[in-house]
Amino acid sequence: MSLLATSLSGVTAASARFDRASTSLVANASRGNDILSDLVEQIDSRNAFQASINVARAADDMMGRVLDIKA
């Protein structure tokens, strides 16, 4: 699997986790339940999303360097 495919998979998974945490946060807040774990999950999924974007950027940069070397 390529780095770009891996990072895209990570972005998709992190986005889905953030959506689930957001939905859970709204449901728990409306019931008066503790929302701390939902907030932590949102932060964690945001960080995972950013890490996956960084992998994509690094892969793009490496490919550019390879092409520069071959040219």
Rank of each mutant, 00 (worst) to 15 (best):
G10E: 11
A16T: 03
L39P: 00
D19V: 15
G32Q: 03
G10C: 05
L39H: 03
N28A: 13
S22L: 15
R20I: 15
T12R: 12
A21H: 03
N28Q: 09
S9Q: 12
D38W: 05
V11W: 09
G10K: 11
I35S: 08
R20Q: 14
S24D: 14
V11E: 02
F18D: 15
D34H: 02
D38E: 01
R31V: 09
S24K: 12
R17H: 12
S15D: 04
S15H: 03
R17I: 02
V26K: 14
D38I: 01
D34C: 01
A14M: 00
V26H: 04
S15P: 01
A16S: 07
N28M: 14
S30Y: 08
I35Q: 05
S9E: 13
T12F: 14
S30W: 14
N28Y: 06
S9A: 11
S37F: 01
A29E: 11
L36C: 10
N33H: 08
A21W: 02
R17D: 10
S9L: 08
S24M: 09
F18V: 10
D38L: 02
A16G: 00
S22R: 08
I35N: 08
A16P: 02
S37T: 02
R31W: 09
D19Q: 12
T12V: 11
N28G: 07
V11S: 04
D38Y: 06
D19F: 15
R20N: 15
N28P: 05
G10Q: 05
A29M: 05
V11K: 09
R20K: 13
A29Y: 12
R17K: 12
S9H: 13
A27I: 08
A29V: 06
F18G: 11
L36M: 10
S37L: 06
A27C: 02
V11F: 05
A27D: 04
A14Y: 00
N28H: 09
N28C: 03
S24L: 10
T12L: 13
A21C: 03
A13E: 07
G10T: 11
L36F: 12
D34G: 00
R17V: 10
I35L: 00
D19N: 13
A13D: 04
A29P: 12
S15G: 06
R31L: 10
A21M: 08
S24A: 14
L25N: 13
L25T: 07
T12N: 13
S22D: 07
A13S: 10
T23L: 13
R31M: 07
G32I: 03
A14I: 01
T12S: 14
T23S: 13
L25F: 15
L25Q: 14
N28V: 07
A13L: 14
L36A: 05
A21N: 02
G10R: 06
S30L: 11
R20M: 11
L36N: 15
S9V: 08
R20S: 11
L39Q: 07
A21I: 03
F18I: 12
R20E: 15
S37C: 00
T23H: 11
L25S: 10
S9R: 13
D34T: 06
G32M: 02
L25I: 12
L25A: 14
S24N: 15
A16V: 05
N33M: 08
S9M: 10
F18S: 10
S37K: 01
N28W: 14
A27M: 04
V26R: 06
